[in-house]
Every structure is written in C-alpha cells, then in structure tokens.
C-alpha cells in the first residue's frame, strides 16, 4: 500500500510503444472511422458538382472552427466570444504578406498562425483571469478592437477599402488553388483540427482542461497550473482559427475587415458547439456539419423565411437538448433512457 502512495515504477518502454500496445479494436474504431470518412470525402470530390463542392468546403471550414472553439469554450470552459479576431488576423496576415510583400502563401501561413497565437497569449494572460460573462464580454471587445486596428492601419491593410490578394499571372506569389484545391485544403484543415482535438482530449492536458473547467481551486490543489492550461488552450484554439482564416483569405481573394472580423463567425462557432454538445470531439463535428447543411437546405428550399426557420430550429434544439444532441444521444444510449421530456426536466429543473 505504501508503494502506490510514493509513485509507481517507471517502465523503460517508450511512450509510443505503450500507445500502440494499448490499441484494441474497441478503442481504435474512432480513428478508423475518421480515416474512412476522410477517404470517403476525398473520393466524393470526384463525384460532386462545383456547387456541392463549395458547400462541403464551407462545412469543413466550420468543422475546424467549431473544434477550435470547443477547446477553449467547451473543454476548458472559457466561452470566448472573440475567436473571430484570430480568424481576421490570420486572414489579414496572409493578405498583407502576399499583396504587399509578395510572400508565398505557404510562407505566410505559419506567420498567420503565429500572429494569432501571439495575440491569443497577449489578450489571454489578462482576460483569462475573468470568468463567465465577464470573459465573454472582454473577448468580444478584444475582437472589435482588433478589427478597428486593422480598419485604421490603412497604409498597410487598405483599411475599410478592403484588400486583394494577387492570384493571376506573374503577380501571384502562389497560384490560386481553385475550387478543387480549396476543397482539399479545408478538408485537411478540418481533419487536422479533429485529430488535434481528439489527441488533446485524451492527454494529460485534456484532463487538465476539464479540471480547470470544473473547478479551478480543486485543479490547482492537484498540481495543475491553471494559468498555463488556460493560456495554452486559448493559444491552440487561436492557432486553428488563424489557420482557417488564412485559407479563407486566399480563397476569397478580396475582402474587407467587416468580412473576416464578422462576429457572426464567432456566434456560429458557439452555436455549433452548443447544438452538437460541448466537451467532446464528435459534438462540435456533428454540430458544424448538421447546421451548415441544414442552413443550406433551408436557403435552397424555403426562400425568404429560411433564416427564421433556421433560428426556430436552433431554439427548439437548445430547449429540448440543452446538453447538445450528441451528448444527449450518448447518455440516452448508455442509460437506455430516451425520453426527451425527462431530458428537459433533468437540465432545466
């Protein structure tokens, strides 16, 4: 008994060997399923028309954004309403470098991610001391501030007049990817964000994020440096969002500060995570795919009232599945208890 209180003997076995040995059919199916979906999406590209390709590209974008928001807002419990700041900064970093300095996209991309992470750490250190609504409002303000800075740095960013990335002829630092290219780019981005989230969630750091979410005093008491956990989670989230912003900028070619600092990006991230179910990997994935496809379906089939119906559906889902659809299904499946009314009672009363 005394032994376990002092620590366990360390094996010399490498960490990865341990990982691979730990794989069983039961716990490796999510990875296999993910690979299959990825392969299917690659194959699908050859079969679908350009319109559908564009739709799926936007689905992939939101999968990445939702996964990113979930890392800080879901797992760590800090609901950021300023994630679009990293999106806009990533977009503008790429555009400014490509347009003003003729830097290739692939060289600009890591710098865009770096700018996003640096900004996240800079605002995270003071703001992550705030909790709940205060953090939400402060991040919202930080994002508005970032947009205004870009808006007013006219000599560099073109200000409110927008910015254009040269994409044709010898002016282009990197040839335009085209629809198929961006389909692939955003598919890979989505896949990377899902893998990052899944690996994080199963790591020590993932448990630390959940602990911080649940109770910071208790987390500190078991040796978790809560400041580091919060700032790193915010930084990882910002890196993914900035990366998405960079690809988005190149895809759009021409845009304005109001486009890439549009707060509705943040709102969509939040809604997708909440609808799907926060604090899991599948929840935001399902939320992003479901809402983006639903929104498109309504737009095509319902005409003028599509946004109204879309909003009404979101309200209904939030009322009946406050914990998120995926979380509800998982819990219901485990307990074999599917009553939706009971579910509402459990979370509302």
């Amino acid at each position: 008994m005394a032994d376990i209180l002092r620590g366990r003997a360390r094996s010399r076995q490498g960490l990865f060997v341990g990982w691979i040995r730990a794989l069983t059919p039961a716990n490796s199916w999510p990875a296999l399923a993910g690979l299959l979906v990825f392969a299917a999406m690659l194959a699908l590209q050859q079969l679908i028309e350009p319109g559908t390709q564009r739709l799926l590209t936007s689905v992939f974008l939101f999968v990445a954004l939702a996964q990113a928001w979930n890392i800080i807002g879901g797992y760590t419990g800090y609901a950021s309403f300023g994630q679009v700041a990293f999106f806009g900064l990533g977009a503008y970093t790429v555009a400014v470098l490509m347009n003003n300095y003729h830097v290739s996209f692939w060289a600009a991309l890591p710098l865009a991610v770096l700018v996003g992470v640096v900004f996240a750490v800079a605002i995270g250190l003071p703001l992550l001391r705030l909790r709940g609504h205060y953090f939400a409002i402060a991040t919202l303000g930080a994002a508005e501030g970032a947009r205004e800075v870009i808006n007013n740095l006219t000599s560099v960013t073109g200000g409110g007049g927008g910015i254009t990335i040269p994409t044709f002829g010898s002016d282009a630092p990197t040839p335009y990817f085209g629809k198929p290219g961006f389909y692939l780019a955003f598919l890979v981005l989505a896949a990377v964000s899902v893998v990052v989230a899944a690996v994080l969630a199963r790591s020590r750091f993932g448990y630390a994020m959940v602990a911080v979410h649940e109770d910071e005093d208790a987390a500190g008491a078991v040796g978790i440096n809560t400041t580091v956990v919060k700032v790193v989670a915010f930084g990882v989230s910002a890196a993914i969002v900035a990366c998405a912003g960079a690809f988005y900028a190149f895809q759009q070619i021409e845009f304005y500060p109001t486009d890439v600092f549009d707060a509705s990006f943040t709102v969509l991230m939040v809604i997708m995570v909440m609808i799907g179910g926060s604090g899991s990997v599948v929840g935001p994935l399902a939320g992003a795919v479901g809402l983006q496809l639903l929104s498109q379906f309504l737009r095509v089939n319902l005409g003028n009232f599509n946004q109204l119906i879309f909003g009404a559906i979101i309200v209904l889902v939030v009322v009946f599945f406050p914990q998120g659809v995926v979380t509800y299904l998982r819990d219901a499946w485990r307990t074999r208890h599917f009553s939706i009314l009971d579910n509402v009672r459990r979370y509302r009363l």
Partner: peptide, 12 residues
C-alpha cells in the same frame, strides 16, 4: 488527474 499532474507523475 492527481497522478497526472502532481508529484512522481505516471508516464501515461
């Protein structure tokens, strides 16, 4: 969580 983040941490 305590064994992951305290002293004498476990390897995995």
């Amino acid at each position: 969580i305590g064994a992951m983040h305290g002293n004498e941490r476990d390897r995995s």
